[in-house]
Design a protein around this nucleic acid. Structure first.
Length: 349
DNA sequence: GAACCGTGGGT
DNA sequence: TACCCAAGGTT
């Protein structure tokens, strides 16, 4: 691969960043000392596949509740999962806690500075280890996220499709990453990708790198990055069960791994190709299967769930779970798909 | 490598 | 509306 195509984009990009950096609660102004590594790490985990505007309120809430590694390492698992509810990709929350405890137990309460050591902690992949090392510790690391992939693919007009082009994009990113200010450089690339070099309708007239950009020269910035076609999302069917007793509803804890792992939930039956009706009910009762359904898109399938309900008067069956006050359901920390179902049920009552 | 893993914003 | 996509990681 011809990777001698290196070009000097660091100087114009950093100059642009010095004047245009977004002001974010976890970020230090350009050219100033790095922020608290705890803040950098917390924000980077929350920002995985999640937009800045979505993250900000969660970041503020977490920082107020768990201001440092020691407090987070001592956090109650259930309280942390509840606080993460609605943000998605719940394995991030489980890994966050595991990493905080590893830092407390094995690293003297401080994050290691090197990319290689960070990479060993739960939830630190190639991107996060590089980003934290560069942004929080000023190390030179090659930071490649979705923004950087797009910017690089356009700068060099890469015709190979993603994800196959990832190794080459990493080599090219390495070739343009400066020795100093690698953290600012990474954040500048991401700000550029998020605000100027956007997936659609990029604002090339405002781009500090327009004169360096092969895709711009071709007049086809939106043609990059080339991507392989995605597979269609299948539809799965299921049923959620609403068991009510004296103003309370039965909630269960989902298994620790897998979809919505570790989260509080309504009981569900199997999710299959055909509507399973009352299969998998949490206990035998006079369930009513409603006509209304709840649809919710997950990453790799679309769920269409029926709703079944029953109101119990006398004895409550002995069953694993919590009878949660319906008026206080907002505090249960339900993932969005169950919050939707609860709203639907409450509208029907 | 490919499947799995959430949710909401933007168009 | 339906689709793309986002500061990706784990298995």
């Amino acid at each position: 691969m011809p990777d001698n195509a290196s070009r000097d984009i660091a100087a114009p990009l950093l100059a642009w960043y010095d004047a245009n950096a977004r002001v974010l609660p976890w970020r230090a102004p350009p050219g100033t000392p790095p922020p608290d590594p705890y803040r950098v790490w917390l924000s980077e985990v929350m920002l995985q596949q999640t937009q800045v505007a979505t993250v900000i309120p969660y970041f503020e809430k977490f920082l107020a509740r768990w201001p440092d590694f020691a407090s987070l390492a001592a956090a109650d698992d259930a309280e942390l999962m509840t606080a993460w509810a609605g943000l998605g990709y719940y394995a991030r929350a489980r890994n966050l806690l595991a990493a905080a405890r590893a830092v407390a137990d094995e690293h003297g309460g401080k994050l290691p500075a090197s990319e290689a050591e960070l990479r060993k902690l739960p939830g630190f992949g190639a991107y996060t280890a590089a980003a934290v090392s560069a942004i929080a510790f000023g190390e030179r690391a090659v930071v490649v996220d979705g923004n950087v992939e797009r910017v690089i693919a356009r700068l060099f007009a890469l015709s190979d499709p993603l994800p196959g082009a990832k190794p080459r994009i990493r080599v090219l990113t390495d070739s343009v990453t400066p020795v100093t200010r690698a953290g600012d450089f990474a954040q500048a690339m991401m700000d550029l990708g998020a605000t100027i070099c956007t997936p659609r309708s990029p604002k090339c007239l405002l781009c500090p790198l327009a004169d360096h950009c092969d895709a711009r020269a071709q007049g086809l910035p939106e043609a990059y990055p080339v991507k392989v076609a995605k597979k269609a999302r299948p539809i799965r069917h299921g049923t959620m069960f609403w068991a009510e007793h004296h103003g309370r509803v039965l909630l269960v804890r989902r298994p620790a791994s897998g979809l919505l792992g570790g989260m509080r939930a309504l009981p569900t039956g199997p999710w299959t190709d055909v509507a399973p009706a009352l299969d998998g009910a949490p206990f035998a009762a006079g369930w009513t299967l409603h006509n209304a359904t709840v649809s919710h898109g997950f990453t790799h399938f679309e769920l269409v769930s029926a709703l079944a309900s029953v109101t119990l008067d006398g004895q409550v069956p002995v069953i694993q779970g919590e009878w949660w006050p319906i008026d206080d359901l907002d505090s249960a920390g339900l993932p969005t798909v169950f919050a939707k179902a609860a709203d639907q049920i409450r509208r029907m009552r």
